[in-house]
Nucleic acid binder design. Structure first.
Length: 262
DNA sequence: TTATATGTTCGATA
DNA sequence: TTATCGAACATATA
């Protein structure tokens, strides 16, 4: 579930559980070591005995500052999430566990193992090295516009590119394009200034509303397109134009044809 | 059994 | 060289 709003909600959850607590132990549970982008010894060395002093987020990337000096970076891939447990058996698909001295254990779960657990110097350096753009909630209209202008790909593919703006994922991209009445395959270079502006506004308000609803699906505003995001569904505002599925930029994509013409 | 999945990266191609 | 596209990654679920 991890796009910007989901990661923001997980950040809050992480803070509730971990802030100012001391790490007593860490546990590694991925036999293929796919999610550990730093050596396990490095993760242990930096985390054992350290406290979590603050958190940060850029797009879908979550960071936790360690009192030992470096930062823990978590990325949730397609299927990552967090869950606290204590004496129970660890949750299904747990890949990484942070155990605190008060007995709480925080599980990083990720069935598909596209997630990341890693030690980094600091979020700013990480952003630079990975060439990640500004967060959707922070980016200026100018930067957003420039990023779109210098590409000639389908607008949806551009929105999903974290080097253009950080935090948009597949459902938010569809949501934005629906709101703005833009076909996902429209080329970036054919976007009008108005369309670009409304895309950014739309993306920001979607993210904020989703965070406000705690990213709980059932609590999303009724007008959210994601509620009707499957082929054949009928959006109440467009009773005669059933939702159509297609593939754009390699991703499942849904539109209301009547509203989003090429 | 087949298709799809809320993400990112890498290699091939233009 | 640079931009774009599609495959690949590992696994679960419908």
């Amino acid at each position: 579930m991890p796009e910007l709003p989901e990661v923001q909600v997980m950040r809050s959850y992480f803070e509730e559980v971990a802030l100012n607590k001391e790490v007593k132990d860490v546990g590694f549970h991925d036999s293929l070591n796919k999610v550990f982008k730093s050596a396990k010894s490095v993760i242990s060395k930096n985390m054992l005995g350290a406290r979590i002093t603050e958190t940060n987020r850029l797009g879908k990337y979550l960071f936790a500052r360690l009192s030992s000096g470096k930062w823990l970076h978590l990325h949730f891939g397609m299927t990552g999430s967090l869950e606290v447990f204590r004496s129970e058996e660890m949750p299904r698909f747990t890949r990484f566990v942070i155990e605190f001295t008060d007995g709480d254990k925080l599980a990083f779960k990720d069935s598909r193992k596209f997630g990341v657990v890693q030690i980094i110097d600091d979020p700013a350096a990480f952003q630079q090295n990975q060439k990640i753009a500004d967060d959707l909630l922070e980016i200026s209209l100018d930067k957003f516009k420039l990023g779109l202008k210098r590409r000639s790909i389908a607008v949806k593919a551009a929105l999903l590119d974290q080097k253009l703006v950080a935090g948009i994922g597949n459902w938010i991209a569809d949501e934005m394009l629906f709101n703005c009445g833009i076909h996902p395959e429209k080329s970036c270079k054919n976007l009008t200034a108005n369309e670009i502006e409304s895309l950014l506004e739309s993306g920001q308000s979607i993210a904020k509303e989703a965070i406000a609803a705690d990213t709980h699906y059932g609590d999303f505003p009724k007008h959210f397109f994601v509620n009707y995001r499957k082929a054949g569904a009928i959006h109440p505002d467009h009773p005669h134009s059933p939702v159509e599925g297609m593939r754009v930029g390699g991703r499942g994509t849904f539109i209301v044809p009547e509203k989003q013409r090429l």
